[in-house]
Nucleic acid binder design. Structure first.
Lengths: 197, 197
DNA sequence: TATTGTAGTGAACGAAAGATCACTTGTCAA
DNA sequence: TTGACAAGTGATCTTTCGTTCACTACAATA
């Protein structure tokens, strides 16, 4: 039960930090959103900063087990259509999964203030996706689905436009439908450019 | 002289907001950085929020006159090397110009809190660069430097990877040299893919 | 049943925040 | 020379912040 409340505090903190940032969040509101009085939080965490660090620990651990390990790499698609479908599934998840969206927003807001947030932000926004697509494109070249080229360069050229559209969704959620359309259109353009017909 | 101090306050605010965010900035420190005592600021602005709004006004106006008008579009390059050179000049400016860097950081930090910041962020990070390159690529296609394709799609595919590397520089300045190298490498790859030999 | 530890309460604290105000200084126009 | 005004000072106000503490309720254990 104590464990449970500690977890609930982290969830509430992720929610508030992602909307108002660390400095913009206060303990009163945070406690109130859990049905607690403000001092109640201090039974579980020593300070606001400790909550922040615990949240970052959790985000880092989550990223590590979810995206950091090789066995979580998606299978290499067997056809262009399968590649599109895989991209759209991933995009849909990363754009709509609340936990992931909030994590991106927090990292966006705190990347200049906290070194660990800075590091994790680069993984989330740049290197993570790029490495994943490097692996996929390498496999697709082996299967003769993509023209032979530097897979890391193609991955960078593919991942960053998609990442830009994901950021757009975080910033202006009303443009989500359009952004998803553009991800698909861009993917098809990418295949038309680099695919083997 | 009053005008001068008002301007100096905005400069100091841009500096502090870009480092600590709006909520993380306090009037005491802001005044102190100008050699004023905290109440001195209130002779020029009614409140912290008014400073924020004035700063945003200035950022919006600056963006409008700098990037918003058609006559500030760069000339269409006449050769692949000229295209690379133009890109590298622009990248160098946008990565090293302090005012521009601080503006991007402020927009990054406040995009979820302020609607005007949200809008300007999308221009800075996505639509602005894309529209500019749409124009350039369109011209390069006319000159036979680029294969015929959708210039807006190409512009999106070119601008967003560069934008991702610019964000990387903002977040981790020690990676600036590497990022600039990658911008050039990506540009050459882009030309190798879409250029007419 | 008695005891002990845990989760939560409500009052209170000091520090720091944004803002106000009476006052001084210096500049410039009448 | 004088009057008015703009710019800056220092004390002070109110509010809110993060945090502490004595206390209560209650569940689990011995």
């Amino acid at each position: 039960m104590a464990k449970d409340t500690k977890e609930r505090i982290l969830n509430a903190a992720l929610e508030m930090f992602s909307q108002k940032g660390y400095e913009g969040t206060n303990i009163r509101e945070l406690s109130a959103s859990l049905g607690l009085v403000k001092s109640g939080i201090y039974k579980h965490y020593e300070s606001k900063e400790e909550i922040w660090n615990a949240l970052l620990d959790r985000m880092i651990a989550y990223y590590g087990e979810r995206f950091g390990s090789p066995e979580h790499l998606p299978p290499v698609p067997d056809s262009p259509e399968e590649f599109i479908a895989m991209t759209m599934r991933m995009a849909d998840l990363t754009i709509h999964d609340e936990q992931i969206v909030k994590t991106r927003k927090v990292l966006t807001l705190e990347q200049f203030r906290d070194d660990r947030a800075r590091e994790l932000a680069t993984k989330h926004f740049l290197t993570g996706l790029t490495e994943m697509f490097t692996h996929i494109f390498s496999g697709m070249m082996d299967k003769g689905l993509l023209r032979l080229d530097d897979p890391a360069m193609l991955a960078f050229a593919y991942a960053t436009p998609i990442s830009a559209l994901i950021h757009l969704c975080d910033r202006e959620p009303e443009k989500t439908a359009d952004a998803i359309r553009r991800i698909e259109a861009f993917s098809r353009h990418f295949l038309a450019t680099y695919g083997v017909k």
